[in-house]
Amino acid sequence: MTSQQFEKMVTEALHKGTHKAAEEMQEKNWKCILKKIEETEKERKAAKGLFRNRIVGISAAAAVLVLALGSFTQPGQAALDKIRKYFAPEKIVEFEVEGDKENIHSRLQQGEIGYVIYYDEERYKIVEDGKVDRLVMKESVEGLPEVYMEISQDTDNSPEDLAEKLEAELRGEFSRVDEAIEVTDPLKAIYIHAIDGGTRGDDPIVNYYLIDNTQGGTFIIKQKYFLEAAEGHGSRFYQMLKEFTIIPAE
């Protein structure tokens, strides 16, 4: 048997082996695709309405601070001194969680990579490793899926470039990855939302907020929680992000 004859046989085996099943699924698949598209369009329309109602723009504090500190490369003592002027070490922040308003005692976190955030210190703690700061539950509950919010910085890639890369990575792990969109609430960023499954309470959710670091790079905020925790941890992470401010480094 020549190579050409053999290759022809491989092609024919694949054609004959898949022909009937492929033909049978064509119409059914089309109906399911249309249904999924319509459902997703409805969800997105509803989500856009929600965003419009919540728009607050970039944090005024962030704008003031960027103007006050100018353009730097690394956060240094001078910048940190100025932070102290603008940010109290603790404050009460009003959170809206599961429809109720709560006054949460919040602590200032000054990230070495050049940001500040107020976090809910009653429920969370921050684990730092110099490159990535991870906000985790103070008291972990055995058996619950992972819950955290991570803050890191990529100094080489823009939010747009990272969005493409992260979307591709998420597609390998999650059954639904929404198209990256620009948001202004809770802060100005490129936002990517992914969920695996979507029917069980423990189905994982990942959100990325990619924030321009104003120097060609990106602050990457990754939130991980699960479907049932969307109204709890998801909502708290969202509220805390409203208090996120970039500190231009010197």
């Binding site: 699924m25 698949n29 598209i37 597609r171 198209e179």
Partner: peptide, 17 residues
């Protein structure tokens, strides 16, 4: 057949969006 069907559906939904 089941996985192939799911893969085709997800692929075309992603193409659309």
């Amino acid at each position: 057949n089941a996985l192939a069907s799911d893969a085709v559906q997800e692929t075309f939904v992603r193409v659309y969006f």
